[in-house]
Nucleic acid binder design. Structure first.
Length: 875
DNA sequence: AACTTCACG
DNA sequence: ACGTACGTGAAGTTC
């Protein structure tokens, strides 16, 4: 017997199995990938275990097969292949090609028949044959030389059918499997068999008689009158069923076993398909990708300090910091790369180098960076201003696809097909084991990052151009990074004393409320534990639970508010929660973040995180400082100017999201409302409730306001009903009335969802993109969510575009006017400045002017502003 | 690390 | 029939 081993796979069946075994995964371009992924895992495993010399994947060619001429309803009544699966077949084929595996399909024949035919040919050649499928019918092919692998639950779990295993399982020979199918039929293929005969009876009959034909010859000896009757009545059908179940082993195929030699995968092509489909786990695990040996070696020179001679006109500069908190963390070293040579300067000495600082400041020296905002912030701390930032890897990757959202160079690089860099976690370790590596390793890591930036620049820039996003990236995000870095580094002064006094006061109040609650509850417990609180309220006191969470009773504020009249303790709990939040998050939390040296808080803006284009703020979050309730709003009294005789100045866009909506949908009434600067909620109430302005009650206005919010969020009757505490039906009526009153809005909502389905993504005014793979999902929830996102993202994202542009214009204007005023914070639709009193008059003119003209819409933008001795007073 | 709650736009 | 309003971050509890 030859040492050749042939692997014959049933492509359709395995892809089906994979599809139903795995949840519906998608990559960022909206392609479903679960079937391809599962197929890949099976393929990897089986090839590793079997090491075949020959391979083929067979596919079904079309709907009609030769079996249909025997039985028209063959495979009738089958559910249509879900579109989520059919769209994956091209990728399965592509992957097979990349592996260098032959594939074949033949008109009028099924994959089974191709496999059966090749199976016999291979056996004749003396090859060992392995057939892999998810379909048990294939077990009829098992012989001494052929083993049939059938997938079990999951994807990589297989059952191996040799003739003896078939015997063991059914008490039949492999060929008798066909007879068995003939008698019992097969619901999935719509093979009728003999009605009333199932697996048990079929096996029993075949054990006695051997085959369908023998059975019918000896029908008299069959015991059981009813059974005999059924067999007689369905003789033709049984014989036909057997024919249908028989795999053709003599199909007119045009390939022969000799064509199927397999010489191993082309891993470059395989990984490129993996990249396309975002198979991150496979890419990470792949030796090809992560093995030290396959990673190209890099050279870098360690320098004591920066000398003039290495500083070129164009370079990558990368600051390697310990962790992401660059405001406080240690600068471990600086990597420089000029396209040929890599340098690493350990420690923070580089900023001592006059040559380096001057080079950073020189706008004619072109810099490529990983994160230009971080470099700007750190530079500013060293009294240096970064100029000439020309490429920012983090921002470029984010604009191409905001869902990437990793700050790690290796993770970003991998997305774009570059693998010669390690993850920070790999180099530093994680959790308790996290530590700075030795100099060599650190230098190599930083240098690899620097080189990755250089190599990735053309790839990303090409992608940006292709998507028409280059100017969004280069003229909006990149200059903004520098401004944000400066704002972060500038920081905002916070009076610890003010917070502390509030804290003492709160402490007292909390203790009192705590005592009251314990008394009313009749026992002491942890009020901060929803679980314990739930037991007290809903079991001990016996209130009615109105809502449940995954883990138990919901004790969220909206639930408690509905129970307020039921028991006295509720209002105390709500009060306790409110004050507790202030104490822990805002008093204690913020005090921890005040820097010793300058009494300031330096937040970090995440410029490459949100999927809509907004910024986010962390360590601490300064975008959610209380304002709605007076007690909380007092926190803002601690936010003060950094210099005596300066004031805080805040300006915010009024109704920016609804104005953006008006701009995009061009609804006549909405546009007119803004052109006349009407109160938009009142106007909405007038149109929805068909009343005159004078007759709009406060409740009507409140409802209209909620509807407007709903419109911006991607309206749903349920959401609105929750918000307004009305029934879903009433909410649905509101929405209908709204959309009838503003037909342009309805048109926009319909169009944007249709567009998202067609393109797979939505865009903002400045061509920011968000991919929405789930918009074509057959899962109602996933699809609905994607549809609401499709409606909301262009609105929220365009508003983000506008304020970002305003920030750039504002920074420029302040510089041109040589003003001292500083932009300190951005809170989505507002900008907060500090300025000397003398500049206020000019700011009152400049800020609204600049913000209102940031981006021209078909409706005016409106800015309101206020100033005072603290952030609290800017109302 | 997941869940719940709540602060903001 | 399905069950959710969009986008965030931080704190505290529980597993």
């Amino acid at each position: 017997m030859s040492s050749e081993k042939i692997l014959l796979l049933d492509g359709n069946s395995l892809a089906y199995r994979a599809f139903f075994a795995l949840p519906l995964l998608t990559n960022e371009h909206g392609i479903h990938t679960n079937a391809v992924y599962g197929f890949t895992l099976m393929l990897q495993k089986i090839m590793e275990e079997e090491n075949p010399t020959h391979m083929l994947v067979a596919f079904d060619a079309g709907k009609t097969t030769f079996r249909h001429s025997t039985f028209g309803e063959y495979k009738g009544g089958r559910q249509k292949t879900p579109p989520e699966l059919s769209e994956q077949f091209p990728y399965v084929r592509k992957l097979i090609d990349a592996y260098g595996i032959k594939r074949y399909e033949l008109e009028m024949f099924e994959a089974d028949d191709i496999i059966g035919t090749l199976c016999k040919q291979a056996e004749e050649k003396g090859q060992q044959v392995i057939v892999v499928s998810g379909d048990k019918d294939l077990t009829q092919l098992a012989t001494e030389n052929t083993t049939v692998y059938i997938t079990r639950k999951g994807i990589t779990d297989i059952e191996k059918y040799t003739p003896s295993h078939v015997e063991e399982k059914y008490g039949l020979s492999p060929l008798q499997i066909i007879d068995m199918k003939g008698l019992m039929g097969d619901a999935s293929d719509n093979i009728p068999g003999v009605p009333g005969v199932g697996e048990k009876t079929a096996i029993k009959l075949l054990k006695e008689h051997g085959s369908v034909e023998n059975l019918y010859q000896a029908l008299d000896t069959v015991s059981g009158a009813k059974l005999k009757e059924k067999l007689v009545a369905n003789e033709d059908q049984a014989k036909m069923s057997k024919i249908l179940a028989t795999i053709e082993t003599n199909a007119p195929i045009e390939v022969s076993v000799d064509d199927l030699t397999y010489s191993g995968p082309n891993m470059e092509e395989v990984t490129s398909v993996w990249k396309e489909l975002s198979f991150k786990t496979l890419l990470e695990k792949s030796e090809y990708v992560t093995d030290e040996q396959t990673r190209t070696e890099i050279k870098f020179e360690v320098l004591e300090n920066v000398n003039q001679s290495i500083l070129k006109d164009t370079m990558v500069v990368h600051l390697e910091m310990y962790g992401e908190q660059y405001h406080t963390s240690e600068l471990l070293g600086i990597a420089l790369y000029d396209g040929e040579k890599s340098y690493f300067i350990p420690g923070s000495m580089a900023f001592q180098s006059k040559a380096f600082c001057e080079w950073l400041e020189d706008e004619n020296k072109v810099k490529y960076l990983v994160d230009s905002k971080a470099v700007q912030a750190v530079s500013k701390k060293n009294n240096v201003s970064l100029h000439g930032a020309d490429f920012d890897l983090l921002l470029a990757a984010y604009i191409v696809n905001p869902s990437i959202s990793s700050e790690d160079v290796a993770t970003m690089a991998k997305e774009f097909g570059y693998f010669d860099v390690l993850t920070d976690e790999n180099v530093y370790g994680k959790g308790a084991k996290k530590a700075t590596p030795e100099l060599d390793k650190l230098g190599e890591h930083a240098s690899r990052k620097a080189q990755a930036v250089w190599k990735l620049k053309p790839t990303l820039e090409e992608k940006l151009h292709e998507n028409e996003q280059y100017s969004l990236y280069k003229e909006l995000e990149l200059p903004l990074a520098s401004i944000l870095g400066t704002m972060e580094s500038e920081g905002v002064k916070v009076e610890a004393k003010v917070l502390k006094e509030m804290g003492v006061d709160l402490e007292q109040k909390l203790l009192t409320i705590e005592k009251d609650i314990y008394e009313l509850a009749g026992e002491e417990f942890n009020i901060n534990s929803p679980k314990q609180l739930g037991v007290i309220l809903f079991e001990k006191i016996g209130l009615t639970p109105l809502k449940k969470t995954k883990t138990g009773y919901s004790t969220a504020a909206d639930v408690l508010e509905k129970l307020e009249s039921e028991h006295e303790v509720i209002s105390h709990i709500l009060n306790y929660r409110q004050l507790g939040k202030l104490q822990s998050t805002y008093i204690e939390g913020l005090m921890k973040e005040i820097h010793e040296n300058d009494q300031k808080i330096h937040t970090r803006y995440q410029q490459a995180l949100t999927s809509t284009g907004r910024l986010s703020s962390i360590n601490p979050n300064l975008q959610n400082i209380p304002v709605r309730l007076e007690e909380g709003r007092k926190i803002r009294k601690a936010f003060v100017p950094s210099k005596p005789d300066w004031v805080m100045f805040a300006a915010d866009y009024s109704q920016i999201e609804l104005r953006v909506l008006a701009h995009m949908c061009e609804d006549e009434k909405l546009v007119e409302a803004f052109n006349h600067d009407m109160d938009i909620h009142t106007k909405t109430a007038m149109d929805v409730f068909h009343v005159e302005k004078e007759d709009v009650t406060s409740d009507m206005r409140r409802a209209a306001k909620a509807v407007n919010f709903g419109i911006v969020y991607g309206i749903s009757d349920y959401g609105l009903s929750q918000n307004l505490n009305i029934t879903r039906k009433e909410a649905a009526t509101f929405i209908e009335q709204y959309l009838n009153s503003f037909p342009g809005v309805k048109g926009y909502m319909d169009d944007i969802v249709r567009e998202a389905k067609q393109k797979g993504y939505v865009t903002t005014i400045l061509k920011r993109r968000r991919y929405l793979p789930e918009i074509t999902s057959s899962n109602f929830n996933l699809r609905s969510f994607a549809e609401r996102t499709a409606m909301n993202t262009p609105i929220q994202g365009s508003a983000a575009d506008i304020i970002k542009k305003a920030m750039i214009d504002m920074a420029k204007r302040l510089e041109e006017e040589k003003m001292q005023a500083k932009m300190l914070l951005q809170v989505h639709d507002e900008l907060i400045f500090e300025a000397p009193k003398e500049e206020i008059e000019r700011l009152e003119k400049i800020v609204p002017e600049v913000m209102e003209s940031a981006i021209k819409l078909i409706v005016p933008l409106k800015v309101e502003y206020a100033y005072g001795p603290s952030w609290y007073d800017t109302k």
